[in-house]
């Protein structure tokens, strides 16, 4: 899995590419943990290029979400592929996470435009 991290203003943008499973999730967990330890105020995770995710991926996002919530940070997941959306639906996690259609919508939400 490729993990690319950039900053756009005060937003930490995490772009993922590949399959997120029990093998690849520990690295992502560690990278998101670094952001949380720096108390990154706004984290955008772009899932446009993630064609597969299992419960290890979900656990990684739940943990990151809980950590950011603790310091009043905000985490938005953007551009979920159908396979990834399917697992969120089965796990009924759409009500827990903030999910945006794409990066632009997520950025607008961070900027308070909608």
């Amino acid at each position: 899995m490729k993990i690319q991290m950039t900053n756009q203003g005060d937003v930490s943008v995490v772009e993922l590419e590949g399959e997120l499973d029990f093998h690849s999730s520990p690295e992502l967990r560690s990278r998101l943990g670094e952001l949380a330890s720096k108390q990154a105020p706004k984290i955008l995770i772009d899932l446009k290029k993630v064609g597969y995710m299992d419960s290890s991926g979900i656990a990684t996002f739940v943990e990151a979400f809980q950590k950011t919530k603790r310091y009043h940070g905000r985490l938005i997941l953007a551009d979920l592929t159908p396979a990834v959306r399917g697992i969120f639906e089965i796990a009924k996690l759409e009500s827990i996470f903030e999910i945006a259609t794409d990066q632009d919508e997520a950025m607008n939400r961070f900027a308070g435009k909608n």
């Binding site: 299992d54 419960s55 990684t60 739940v62 809980q66 089965i90 796990a91 009924k92």
Partner: peptide, 18 residues
Amino acid sequence: KLPREEPGGLGVHLIRTI
């Protein structure tokens, strides 16, 4: 119990559902 706000514990649930 869903939605689960703690990490983990979903794997078997996914198998059972599918």
